[in-house]
């Protein structure tokens, strides 16, 4: 900015803006480790493909199958990771998975108060709000107020269960199947299931399903 009295003509710069300190640091660390054969460039590329392939659509497919197949649902609730592995979902981060069923009597909500633990193998990377202070600080001591901020009001007779993920276990909420979805195909059901419903902050609705 202050160094603007040079005389060469300005080319329109179509590439990205000047990289930040952190982007430069990321590139430098990665290249140094690759030069020393501590990691391989192909490992980074492959892991980016892994991350790109993990989206809430995987979780949605799991939920839809659980809604239509009671035997699968039983396996899913007994061994979340094993049931997801049936779908070819690997747990590359070596976490286990507990699936928490929402019912008429119980509403589950997941949070990581200490950082950002999240069921990445089945949902992909968490949204920013999940990683920020307001949700992490408050979800465990005033979950009903936090849910209300998402427009979700839980009746007093329903038990709210908050699961704080801290170590090896990740959680996935199995939302309630919405009323009026009896005629839906498995694919149509899966399309209703949003990321936020599998975190437990909203129910699954017939109207606002589709992509998160």
């Amino acid at each position: 900015m202050f160094d603007h009295d040079h005389d060469h003509p300005h080319e329109p710069i179509v590439t990205a803006a000047r990289p930040s300190l952190y982007e430069i640091m990321e590139t430098a660390v990665r290249e140094l480790l690759i030069e020393r054969h501590l990691i391989g460039a192909h490992e980074i590329r492959r892991q980016i493909e892994v991350l790109d392939s993990r989206t809430p659509a995987l979780g949605g497919a799991i939920v839809a199958r659980a809604w239509i197949d009671p035997a699968f649902k039983a396996r899913l609730l007994a061994d979340g990771r094993g049931a997801c592995e049936e779908f070819g979902i690997s747990f590359y981060d070596d976490t286990s998975l507990i699936v928490l069923e929402n019912t008429e009597a119980v509403h589950n909500l997941i949070v990581c108060t200490l950082c950002s633990c999240y069921p990445r193998p089945v949902l992909g990377l968490p949204p920013d709000w999940y990683k920020l202070k307001p949700y992490r600080a408050r979800a465990i001591f005033e979950p009903r107020a936090v849910l209300a901020e998402f427009g979700t009001v839980i009746p007093a007779e329903v038990e709210v269960r908050v699961s704080d993920s801290t170590s090896m276990v990740r959680y996935l909420v199995l939302p309630r199947r919405p009323e009026g979805s009896d005629d839906f195909t498995e694919a149509e059901l899966a399309a209703l299931v949003t990321r936020d419903a599998m975190i437990g902050v909203v129910p699954v609705n017939l109207i606002d399903g589709a992509s998160p």
């Binding site: 952190y22 990321e26 590139t27 990665r30 490992e43 980074i44 892991q47 980016i48 991350l51």
Partner: peptide
């Protein structure tokens, strides 16, 4: 995203 992949690797 590269930073996340780096963390995993």
């Amino acid at each position: 995203k590269r930073c996340h992949a780096l963390a995993d690797v």
